[in-house]
Amino acid sequence: MSILLSNISKNFGKFSALNHIDLEIPEGELVALLGPSGCGKTTLLRIIAGLEQADEGRVLLSGVDKTEQHVSSRGIGFVFQHYALFRHMTVFDNVAFGLRVKPKKDRPSEPEIAKKVHALLELVQLDWLHDRFPDQLSGGQRQRIALARALAVEPSVLLLDEPFGALDASVRKDLRQWLRSLHHELNVTSIFVTHDQEEAMEVASQVVVLNHGRIEQQGAPSDIYDHPANAFVSRFIGQTNIFTLEQHDAQWLQTSGLQIAEDQHGKVAHVRPHDIDIQKAVDGSTAQAVLKDWQHLGALIRIELVKDSPDDSGATVFAEMPNEQFKQLRLNKGDKVSLRIRNAHWFH
């Protein structure tokens, strides 16, 4: 089911949580609402669910205006950050809840409910836990039960609030992949909230970047990474080196191979660490930096460079390259290196 939000605003007292949000999500997408804490992403999710009322604006699901509809009749599935499993019910009863509270004429019979619940528990690979209580489960198991419970009522939209926020790093990695493949299987329009850009890039088919209650950019993960719309998005999505023309000698950047046009409209260059090549300087004149230190990031090496220019206070520049390539350079701490910047994004 497609989701259309038009002109959504929400204030908490004097604090403006959401500011005229317009957003369209096509059917079957897996969308990440990404932003720093306090940017309004959870509030937006709760407004779509009907757990929160917007001060103005409309919420349309599949073209039907649901703004005035109560959460219980919107046909959404909501997965809470802290799972919100019913602690006094078994796993089975938790998943069956949504079916058992249906009005009598729509309610399946108990055998049908049992069949469906077991099928869902198998889908999340936890059928063997059906008679346990929530406090006997691990965080990852609870999260999957919460998902099975939300899916039991066959929601047309699945909403997940920081679904991996409270989990260990290793469990989180597994669950991300699992959620992605589950979405592939079910193809239900899904939105999840996260503050972790890596998670958004890895799981989502569409990413919506929010900041201060506004949408900064919406697009496919690769789009957002390669063509950030503004400085905020560029900084938020992955690491970046920031050079301002006032602070940095334009000469220094040009020596590094960066084209600066005469009518350059931006004054700030954002350069991704992997867009910087380094080489051992053959003589002092081509050297632009001194190698200070490096860290292993698995397959990549992060290289810490100190800019070597007379007017500079010694700003640090980060570069990244594969392990092998770094070994071949045979660099040591304190070596003078020359840089080549392959690509930069310019912002005001």
Binding site: L51, V71, S72, F78, F80, A84, F86, G98, A150, V153
Partner: peptide, 8 residues
């Protein structure tokens, strides 16, 4: 809230 979202 979870119960309400499940249609209760």
């Amino acid at each position: 809230e979870a119960a309400l979202s499940l249609g209760a």
